[in-house]
Structure formats: C-alpha cells, structure tokens
Computed example of a mutant assay.
Amino acid sequence: MGELFFLGIILIICILFFFMTFNFPVSILDKSGGAGVFPRVVLIFLAVSIVTRIFIILKDKEKKHFILFELFQGTQLKFFLSIAAYILLLNKLGYIIATLLFAYGTVNGFFYYTTGSSGSKKQILIRNICITLFVFFMHYFFSNILNIMLPKPFWR
C-alpha cells in the first residue's frame, strides 16, 4: 500500500510538471516545438512506467512490505546523494564535467556493488569509454540538434 501511495504522489507530480511544460517560452522561429518537448517526452515515459508498475503491484498476489525510509539507506542513499551533488555542481562545473563525474561515479559504483569487483582493466576501459561517448553524444544532441543551451563551466 505504501508503494502505491508513493507512486501516486510521483504520478501527480509528473502530471503537474507535464502541464507546466506548456508554459515554456517558444521562439517564433523554433520549428522543433520548443524547450518543453523533451521534458514532455521524459514525463510521458515516466508516467507510463509508473502506471505499469502500479498494475504490476495490483496484479501481484504476494504483497511486499514497502518502507519509505529504506529508500534512504545504503546504496539508495549514495545514489540520492550523488544526484544531489550532480544538481549542485551542474551550473558550476558545466554539463560535460558534472555529467562525466556523475556517470563515472554511479555506473562504476553500481558495477562494483552488484558484482563485488570493479572488473578487469578492459571492462573498466570499455565502460568508461562508453560513458564518455554517451555524455558527448548527449551534449551534441541537446546543443546542436535540439538547440538547448546546457550549463557551461564557471570559468567559460
């Protein structure tokens, strides 16, 4: 029951944010739909995922206990703190540096948590190259294709 309540709150927040995106300013020359298009897509994806999870919970015959405070312990707490640090550092360090630090830390940290080791040198190298390529691709996608300005480091 607690998880359904928690998911319901997140779903309501998604719906509110979705309608807020229609107030984002759109340039007359902008043919892409404006700055609100990408957040709407993400919010729709999140809402569909939440509704799917709600149906899975309701369909499941074995009810599991959900304790909200378990979200803020162990690995979940570390991930929450890393997201908070990412948000705080994004405007100071810029998109690329902050996102690289966040992705390296979380992906490698979760890999270590799930497997008990960091992996071989080859695995670490491939994983970090993939992270780097993904971050630069997303920067290119947002900056050049969607024409969305991303935070730059404070020294630029």
Rank of each mutant, 00 (worst) to 15 (best):
I97N: 07
S120Q: 03
P39D: 03
K92V: 13
M20C: 05
G33H: 08
F45K: 00
I44Y: 06
T114Q: 14
I145G: 00
S143G: 00
G119E: 10
Y112I: 04
F19L: 13
I12M: 12
L150M: 04
P153V: 01
R156C: 14
A85T: 14
N147P: 00
F55Q: 04
I148R: 10
C14L: 06
F136R: 06
F55Y: 14
L100Q: 08
G33Q: 11
G8H: 02
G105T: 15
S32I: 09
W155E: 06
F19I: 12
V107W: 01
F66P: 07
L89K: 09
Q73W: 03
F111C: 07
G8V: 01
D30G: 03
V37M: 14
S117C: 01
Y140C: 01
D60N: 15
T52E: 06
L125N: 08
G109E: 13
F79V: 15
L71N: 15
T21I: 05
K152Y: 04
L89W: 11
F72C: 06
S120E: 02
I97D: 06
L4F: 05
V42R: 05
A84N: 03
S117D: 14
C130I: 07
I12C: 13
I28N: 11
T115H: 02
T21G: 02
Q123C: 00
S82T: 13
I56Y: 00
D60W: 02
I50Q: 10
F110H: 11
S118W: 14
F17V: 12
Y95V: 02
N108Y: 09
F110V: 07
F69H: 10
I87N: 06
Y86L: 13
L101H: 05
P39Y: 09
G94L: 05
F6E: 00
L4E: 05
F55D: 02
F24Y: 15
F19M: 13
I148P: 09
G33D: 06
S143D: 12
Y86D: 08
V26T: 14
T75D: 09
F55I: 14
F80P: 04
P25V: 02
K121C: 03
V42H: 12
Y112N: 14
S120P: 01
F136K: 05
T99F: 07
I83M: 01
G2I: 01
D30V: 00
I13D: 08
L90F: 03
L125R: 13
I15T: 13
F18Q: 09
H65W: 03
I54T: 12
G8K: 03
I87A: 13
N144S: 12
G8Q: 05
V135I: 07
V26N: 13
F18N: 09
L89S: 14
S82Y: 00
I126S: 10
F134W: 06
F102S: 07
I148W: 09
F55H: 10
L11W: 03
F110E: 14
L146V: 02
Y86E: 09
T114I: 12
F111P: 00
I97S: 12
G94D: 07
I50E: 13
L71Y: 04
L101N: 05
F102M: 09
I131W: 11
I145K: 11
